[in-house]
């Protein structure tokens, strides 16, 4: 895909996030929007996957360690063809397979259930180690929140991955700078994130999370890095492309009402129209 195609797809993913969270009257739009470009790149460009065969043995794996941003993952999966886009509005509703946090038994394309922070990266380590033990060539990707890395288990896993030279593992930290209680630097600062991962024997790449040139280059660099895992620190904007949600911790875990929904969709339409003129 060209960068423009990726941008247009990411714009559709963002609309899917807003529609889902609005319909659910609950959910986590802020961190879903900040990671939308990463979700899009992973599922439309980077990973070896097949929506028609979600469980194919040699597929690359993805673990959404920051499971609360399920609306972003679901929107990417739906647009990639794993399930109908219309189903996104069943999010969080009784009987829907689109649970508030990802449940692997019910959602095609979800490789691991998640939601409790700090745990997905360990599972990704297990998958990557398993591939090494069996000589399998698949790669493993996991997306973490920057607040999530306050969990001690993240660093247990980072020590494990660095120690075992899991170069088939790519950790992405969505560094939008905000968590529920406010600025991550004020709540309990995890900075410097890059130096911490470096100290755990990771190859570290800092990027703008909304620049597809940088995203593309980073994942390529990760694939070419041998002997150590890669951590991509993706500097992002929480609530990206929805005017009133951008850089506002209040939109971490809140759904827009009907009026706000209309504004959010208009914002995203505007972004989409601008892309069409390119």
């Amino acid at each position: 895909m060209t960068n423009l195609e990726l941008q247009k797809t990411a714009n559709e993913v963002r609309k899917g996030i807003i529609k889902g969270v609005h319909a659910a009257k609950a959910g986590h739009p802020g961190g879903s929007l900040s990671a939308a470009d990463i979700f899009t790149y992973l599922y439309f460009e980077e990973m070896n996957i097949d929506p028609k065969d979600p469980k194919k043995a040699d597929r690359d794996r993805f673990v959404l360690s920051k499971g609360h941003t399920a609306p972003g993952l679901y929107a990417a999966l739906a647009h990639r063809g794993y399930f109908p886009v219309e189903d996104l509005t069943t999010l969080r509703k009784l009987g829907s397979y689109l649970q508030g946090h990802p449940c692997m038994q019910h959602v095609p394309g979800v490789d691991m259930s998640s939601g409790s922070l700090g745990q997905g990266i360990s599972v990704a380590c297990g998958m990557a180690l398993s591939a090494k033990m069996s000589g399998d060539s698949f790669r493993v990707y996991t997306l973490l929140g920057d607040g999530e890395i306050q969990e001690g288990q993240v660093w247990e896993a980072a020590m494990f991955a660095g120690h075992r030279n899991l170069d088939n593992l790519c950790v992405i930290v969505d560094n939008n700078g905000l968590q529920i209680d406010g600025n991550i630097a004020d709540v309990c600062s995890p900075y410097p994130i890059d130096k911490k991962f470096e100290a755990f024997n990771f190859h570290v790449i800092n990027i703008d999370a909304h620049d597809f040139d940088q995203i593309r280059a980073a994942f390529k660099e990760a694939r070419e890095t041998k002997g150590q895992p890669t951590a991509i620190i993706a500097h992002s904007v929480k609530g990206k492309d929805v005017s009133f949600m951008e850089n506002n911790a209040g939109w971490h875990g809140k759904a827009p009402n009907d009026e706000e929904f209309a504004i959010a969709m208009a914002d995203l339409e505007k972004v989409g129209e601008a892309l069409c003129q390119k």
């Binding site: 691991m112 360990s122 990704a124 297990g126 998958m127 247990e156």
Partner: peptide
């Protein structure tokens, strides 16, 4: 805690 997750990942593969 990490061991439990690593075990989960191994079982998934």
């Amino acid at each position: 805690c990490n061991m439990a997750g690593v075990a989960a990942g191994l079982s998934l593969t």
